[in-house]
Amino acid sequence: MANATLLAQETSSAQKLDQLKKAINQQKTTIKQVNKQREELEKQLQKSDLAISQVVKAIAKTKQQLAETQQKLTTLEKQQTELLKKKNQQELLLAKQLRAAYSSGNHDYIKLLLNQESPAKVQRSITYYQYLNTARIEEIEQFKTTIDKLHQVKIEQMDQIQKLEQLQQAQSKQQKEFSQEKNQREQTIAKLSKQLLNDQQTLEKLEQEEANLKAALARIAKLSQQEESLKGLSRLKRKLSWPVNGKIRRSFGSSKQGYLKWKGVLLSAPTGRQVTTIHNGTVLFSDWLKGYGLVTVVDHGEGYMSLYGHNQALLKSVGDRVETGEPIALVGQSGGQEQSGLYFEIRHNGQAVNPKLWCR
């Protein structure tokens, strides 16, 4: 009887162990599927962020071209007004000259000679007529030049009006593309939000993103060529301006998740606001980075770098030299952020330092 009971207990334990193994395997499979889905969604997020960046830059360029075209049209309208005024003045002058010539009598030089007046008087009359004729010819040539210029202005006006229409059509198309990409991004964010992560998974995700950032900065630091003209930031403590005006939403050193701390600051700012570099330097990185979205990294020399993340669009490319206060990006919420803002770091020899020690 005891043996039967022991056997039953062993069988039950084996069944429970088997069920537990199956549950663990099922959980591993589920986690694997969720991670795969999340990776696909993050790839889609990257694609949407980059597409939005391109459209935003195209819209900005079109807007600038529209302003330039409008200015050109305004200039042409002023030229047209001046030329029409000049044309009217020349018409009046020519008409006056013709009336004066008509009222002075017959201009037939042969008849003048046959009148048998004194040679001196004849010579004076001929000289006078030649003078009037020369003046009329000059006025006619000026009139023709004015007419030609007016014609050219009208042609250029038509070209600019056509260009304006094309730019307006392009802008409309770009706005439509922007709306589509924005909707796609919002859908992706919504899907990512549905995949709720527990504290451990969130910590692991943030650890991986931080490791990716550190590795990326280490790679670009090796590639950077120190320029003698870049003197670093060591002498500029509390002298630099923040890259964007906004309230600090997350402070350097505050808790991020678990033992992880913020290595920079998160500044609240509206989408589209210009992000400016804190000091002159060279752009070392300008691309999308998981967890940080569209990122620009500027080398300031002497081991100092500044990082600007979660941008909507990047305005500079790798290798570009930038000056203090120069626009380098537009504020956004790339990288999966639900609110717009700028993530900003300062690093020295790879180690994050408190931006508040440099910016005022």
Score class of each variant (00 low, 15 high):
Thr5Lys: 13
Thr5Trp: 08
Ala14Ile: 05
Thr30Leu: 13
Lys32Val: 05
Gln33Cys: 02
Lys36Thr: 14
Ser48Pro: 07
Ala58Gly: 08
Gln64Cys: 02
Gln65Phe: 06
Leu66Pro: 00
Gln70Gly: 15
Gln71Asp: 12
Lys72Glu: 14
Leu73Val: 05
Leu73Ile: 11
Glu77Ala: 14
Glu77Phe: 05
Gln80Asp: 14
Glu82Thr: 13
Glu82Gly: 03
Leu83Ile: 03
Gln90Lys: 12
Gln97Tyr: 10
His107Ala: 15
Lys111Glu: 11
Glu117Leu: 07
Ala120Val: 11
Val122Ile: 15
Lys144Phe: 04
Lys144Gln: 13
Thr146Glu: 03
Lys149Tyr: 10
Lys154Thr: 13
Lys154Phe: 01
Glu156Asp: 14
Lys163Trp: 04
Lys163Pro: 05
Gln166Met: 08
Gln168Asp: 07
Gln174Tyr: 08
Gln175Met: 09
Glu177Tyr: 03
Phe178Ala: 07
Ser179Thr: 08
Lys182Trp: 04
Gln187Cys: 02
Ile189Trp: 05
Lys205Thr: 13
Leu217Asp: 01
Ala218Cys: 03
Gln225Trp: 02
Glu228Gly: 10
Lys231Thr: 15
Leu233Met: 05
Leu240Gly: 00
Ser241Arg: 10
Pro243Thr: 06
Val244His: 02
Asn245Phe: 05
Gly246Thr: 02
Gly258Gln: 04
Lys261Glu: 03
Trp262Phe: 11
Gly264Arg: 06
Leu266Phe: 10
Thr277Phe: 01
Ile278Cys: 11
Ile278Thr: 10
Asn280Phe: 13
Val283Asp: 04
Tyr292Lys: 01
His300Glu: 00
Glu302Met: 09
Tyr304Phe: 15
Leu315Asn: 09
Leu315Phe: 08
Val318His: 04
Ser334Gln: 00
Ser334His: 02
Ser340Ala: 14
Leu357Cys: 04
Trp358Asn: 03
